[in-house]
Design a protein around this nucleic acid. Sequence first.
DNA 1: CCAATAGTGTCTATCAGACATTATGGA
DNA 2: TCCATAATGTCTGATAGACACTATTGG
Lengths: 232, 232
Amino acid sequence: MSTTDEAFQGHYLTNLSVHTVLFTIIESELVMCARERTEGPFRFHWELPGANPRMQESLEAAAHRSLSEIVHGSSAILQQLKVFGEPDRDPQRRSIAVCYWGAIAPEHLQPQPPVVSAIHALAESERFAFDHRTIAITAIAHLKRALCNSSVVTDFCPTTFSIRELHRVYEVVFGTEIAAGNFQRKVRSSPGFITKTNTPPASEKGRGRPAEIFTNSRRVEVSPPFHFPHDS
Amino acid sequence: MSTTDEAFQGHYLTNLSVHTVLFTIIESELVMCARERTEGPFRFHWELPGANPRMQESLEAAAHRSLSEIVHGSSAILQQLKVFGEPDRDPQRRSIAVCYWGAIAPEHLQPQPPVVSAIHALAESERFAFDHRTIAITAIAHLKRALCNSSVVTDFCPTTFSIRELHRVYEVVFGTEIAAGNFQRKVRSSPGFITKTNTPPASEKGRGRPAEIFTNSRRVEVSPPFHFPHDS
DNA sequence: CCAATAGTGTCTATCAGACATTATGGA
DNA sequence: TCCATAATGTCTGATAGACACTATTGG
């Protein structure tokens, strides 16, 4: 059995990492947390948050740890995205990346979070380290699918929110205008999607009719799902 | 940094494996390929096909290799399911399992394939090795979701098939009767789901009107999806 | 009153579920 | 001819898209 043929558990060249694609919306744009590398290979390229799982640490816990310098207190809800393990994905060694994704309200991030526009990930122009552009694009596709099929949109919002805020998330992510009336009907008629609060209509600045304030309960499936022009 | 705290790339106790949940339908029952362990821990427990990826081998290739003794010639179409990496999933060592799933026509399996009923995986009674019952249950949920949202059902059938055969797959997997007329309408109206062949209506035995014969082209999404009573 | 935003009602086309009807073969 | 299975047609209720309309605030 040659070196290149053997199973590689325990092989010193192998590496197991966890990476996280954390979405939020800043200034009406879908962005994901990422940092520019300052050293080593792929210097000046964008890199997704990552961590190496510890011996007694679950992969999901490692994913949360990869965000420790980015999220502000309350932890994000993460879901497995995919494993990327092509032999050549890391030019230095065989490396397996278990990837997670999630969304979070910008209020829960550190003040000046390092982010990159999702549109840049889709454009060929932006340079990502390793296969992180592929990971990002896969995550965007999962995000769109999840938005259509579940109430994950509430992860983008603070604990209380108006329907309009949910509406804006969909418009930003799908880059399309959505009729507000139909959106209200759909969200309100999906059992468990939102829960009305009796908090007074928010002390926000408002120059129109104040919105009702809701909170998310559990994650629910939307059936039949939302349907938008899908470019992915 | 203690032993239990350190990152574990290269640690000799770690193991990376690939497991595959391959579904098929035998005697009107949903089954998955699995083998009874004959030695070591979990002896006499069911075990999913697995392999250890080699140094230059992609994870998907390893998943296909895990089926080498089961599939008969034409290879199955596999999709990533999930990674299972809880620290305690293998009592002997830290072990990461990258899992795939797929479906195949029974004709493409070896003559007497080792299989276990999917219903047994769902019932608490059946004993699986490691966390393979959890993996199997996750795969069943993914299968149902994929059947609702795509044309993956054709993987259960030979290269040519009738609509009735697709119909039966859904009835077996979801354990429910589906109106044949509506099913025909849905499948025929989903672009790309099936492609008509001009082969004469099959030389099969038949005591009714012979069915038209189709072939699958590419995998397509079904929008809006099928909807069945979902128990998962 | 007007502007602006939130929320509701209405009309229509589409589509799934239920089920009747026709089509096409074998015994 | 009768039977069995495949395929089509019909009716109805539910719902999404388009969009008009009402509600509720601030200036």
